[in-house]
Nucleic acid binder design. Structure first.
Lengths: 151, 151
DNA sequence: TATTGTTATACTCTATAACTATA
DNA sequence: TATAGTTATAGAGTATAACAATA
């Protein structure tokens, strides 16, 4: 169970994440990639090999199928992704990243994951401790595989 | 300087924050409070005593002044905040939370700061270690005072 | 008949431009 | 003249409803 200390730790993490320099990191990364925030969210969730059916995109993001059409149109217009027919079910269209899409995704993640300057307050040993703790937490989160796929 | 370990630590934190159960924590908290996400962002940034000029709200969020008008209208309609005249400059309107606004803010923060289930993977000692590390990082972030004000 | 995706349309969110009041 | 806030309006972003193709 999360202790009082654990809750305080996560509160501090949340405050770091939603204030100051990180506050609109996502908007900056979107602008840098030449896409809207909505497009970037999808871009990050896609890959070049598997291909993701549009229906599954709608389920993952909890949005309407018609909006997925809009999103994928935007990614295609920019040459970042394309629709591929499903091998057996001809109703389904899978979305895969292009080479440009993979590159844009990597550059965006590079920006997004950059730590705040205040992390420098920790010594090297402390940063390693923080990493080890977060590795243990992340390993216990079953929903993190897709994010880890491209890392 | 952030080490390789520090960057990995922050990447794991970011992944936890933007995937899985926390993915739309903010939308849930907004819905629970009966406000839109835009309103909640402002609600969290306001308080009951000081009062914040609308111009400063626009600067803080990097948005247009006309949108602040829309936001404050929304908070007033719901009885969560109100406009107060500035004592010396009659052009300025300061925004303060009502009692209901303070209560809504606290309940929303309670939800927002709740740690993910995976944090339970850490022992009590490890959660304390994580808290101490994050206290040190947060203390080095100069932009965190306003967030800490109401905590 | 049920499901995937698209089109047409409407509603919400946010910005730009023109305006009023005050400094 | 410059600044704080409002109003009117337009543009993104997102949803709902009706539809075509396939299962």
């Amino acid at each position: 169970m999360a202790t009082r200390a654990g809750r305080e730790a996560w509160q501090l993490i949340s405050e770091m994440m939603f204030n100051g320099e990180l506050q609109d990191r996502f908007h900056e990364a979107s602008a840098a990639a030449g896409v809207t925030p909505g497009l970037l969210k999808s871009l990050i969730h896609l890959d070049q090999n598997e291909g993701l059916p549009m229906r599954e995109m709608a389920d993952h993001f909890g949005c309407d199928a018609s909006y997925v059409t809009t999103i994928v149109d935007g990614l295609e217009e920019r040459g970042l992704a394309l629709r591929r027919p499903h091998p057996t079910d001809r109703r389904v269209k899978s979305v895969v990243l292009t080479d440009a899409g993979v590159q844009a995704r990597e550059q965006a993640l590079e920006r997004l994951y950059q730590p705040p300057a205040a992390l420098d307050a920790l010594t090297g040993d402390e940063q390693r401790m923080l990493r080890d703790l977060m590795r243990k937490v992340a390993a216990a989160d079953p929903t993190l595989e897709s994010a880890r796929r491209g890392a």
